[in-house]
Computed example of a mutant assay.
Amino acid sequence: MKAVVAVLDTGIVMSEDAVREEEQDEVINQKLEGISFNSALELERYLRICTFTSMSSLLQQLNTLLPIFRSRVGALLFLFSALLSRGLEAIQADRDDPGQSLVTSPFGHASQEIVNLLICGHAVPEVFDGNMDVGGGMTVKGIPSKVEVGFLTLLEAFKYCTVGQFLKRPKWPIWVVGSESHYTVLFALQNNIQDENELEDRERRIRQAFDAHDQSGGGGFIVASSVRQLLHDMDIIMPMDMLESLCANEFVVWNELWQALHQIDKSKGGLKSADSTGGVKQFELYHFNGIAKTVGNGSSVQQRPRLTKLRVSVPPKWTPEEYMMDYKPSASANDATGGSMGVDTQKSVKEEPAQHAPIVDCIRTRWERASCNWVGDAPSIV
């Protein structure tokens, strides 16, 4: 391994008495008050680069440098460290348009390339899985492989993009959440919230294969000529009359294929099963917004970051008939299926009507038709 850490050579010597974080931060902030970073040239005077080839020595040094990374220049040093660790030549090779700025003006927002670099180690510009050949010898780069921490975005709820399965289903139940102007964090304490039954796993893999043929940038359709290859790759035996009907037009959208697969028994590679709808899934998510918000505390008002617990309920998957009717399961139907956390589902539906905020739209890009509840003010993603 090779890691590069950008630090400031400011001559700061931490007092042995400054053992608490607050005391360490105060020492750093006082020292930085007299230093100007109004230009790149001024910053360059103090910038120093440290290279590590050992994980243990890297972690030891980072632990020592935590106070400076918590300071007003910490985010910039962290970005420099990530860019240099990847390598500037590799960064430019990752990008589709190396001429564009990695930080957008005028507010200094991180580009998607920076977000992807921090999540997957590659400064690629897109959020779908893998690369996409758009013709003319041009390839658009997405997320190359599975990641440990995922990404969800409000822009997908607005139909501006489609986040791939690599980012939606990370190794750990932690997601960076992007809005139009800010990033927050969504996470769970239980990793099993991402568990799938056999048919859910099968549907996910078929959708991944479908997306691999989707050259529209996440539009949700493929050319009809690609359907046969997809069926072959996924070992799906589709009756000829159904296949001809499905491919009657030039393009096939995912919903059409999905409905057709629910008419094919799972023994033939389809999604038809007597118990394919499963039960209501209920779990808890936590949302953290690091920007200080006004919080009422009795007679006083405070400015502080906010952590919100969300109770999430995901109803059974649609059957094709329910999909056509925009079906919404009744409270009695939900109660019959039970919940994965042992929650009384009927009580949840009747006594806790679903609440809405933009974070719910983001959650629904991962769990369709999810409903959420929380106590107090709505969680904010801005």
Rank of each mutant, 00 (worst) to 15 (best):
S181V: 10
S179A: 11
D97R: 14
V227A: 02
R366H: 13
V147P: 01
V253E: 09
N63F: 10
D96P: 02
G137W: 07
I143G: 01
L77E: 05
L62F: 00
Q165W: 02
V360A: 09
A248R: 15
S313A: 13
R204I: 03
D335A: 14
S39Q: 05
K168P: 06
V295Q: 12
A378D: 08
K159S: 12
G142T: 03
V223Y: 00
P106D: 12
G296P: 05
S340G: 04
Q303K: 11
A224Q: 04
C161R: 10
T162K: 14
S267T: 09
P106V: 12
V375G: 01
N192G: 00
A82D: 06
G121Q: 05
W175A: 04
T64D: 01
I68V: 15
G219L: 08
S105G: 14
T319S: 15
P316L: 13
S348M: 12
A157D: 13
I359A: 04
E89S: 13
L230T: 03
F128Q: 10
S81W: 01
P320R: 10
S225I: 04
K309S: 12
G279E: 06
S273V: 07
G99H: 11
Y183P: 00
T365Q: 12
H122W: 13
K146L: 09
E196N: 03
V176N: 01
V4D: 01
S245A: 14
G11L: 04
V227Y: 03
F158C: 08
I363R: 00
L257D: 06
D275N: 15
Y327N: 08
M14Q: 04
R45V: 05
V140K: 14
I49G: 07
I28S: 00
T337R: 08
C161H: 02
A336H: 11
S15N: 10
D17L: 05
R369K: 11
D377I: 07
S181F: 03
Y160W: 06
V177W: 02
D344M: 02
